[in-house]
Design a binder for these strands. Structure first.
Length: 120
DNA sequence: TTTCTTACA
DNA sequence: TGTAAGAA
């Protein structure tokens, strides 16, 4: 299929698909006219890329997932390389969450303090 | 009409 | 990532 069809089926834009290609995430073949040609399997790959991107993974972190999927696995996260990236990302998210919790507590304390002053 | 590349207020 | 321009 051509880039337009894949983009539509994957819920993205041709621009985004070309961006993934620039970063080595996908490598479509070319027709005689130079048009990119994608096989049906790329739809799953693109979906994998999109969800990973949405989860905050960087383009480089996504590569092992794509490779895992291309290797014939049912999911991109079942390979060792993917697991490694997964752990790192989880640690990152845990860190963000911890920091957010601190901010949340501080804001609550400050608000509580203000309310006390407003109610003599 | 669709895609391609390149470039950008 | 969007959008624009000029070519195929």
């Amino acid at each position: 299929m051509l880039i337009g069809e894949l983009a539509e089926r994957a819920g993205t834009s041709p621009r985004t698909l070309r961006y993934y290609e620039e970063h080595g995430l996908i490598h479509p073949s070319r027709d005689a006219n130079g048009y990119r040609q994608y096989d049906d399997g790329e739809l799953r790959v693109v979906h994998e890329i999109r969800t990973l991107l949405a989860d905050g993974f960087g383009v480089d972190d996504i590569k092992p997932f794509v490779a895992c999927l291309r290797a014939g696995n049912s999911a991109g996260h079942v390979c060792p390389d993917s697991a490694m990236v997964l752990r790192r990302r989880l640690a990152e998210v845990d860190g963000y969450l911890a920091r957010l919790t601190e901010v949340q507590q501080r804001l609550r304390d400050q608000l509580k303090e203000i309310k006390c002053q407003m109610t003599p």
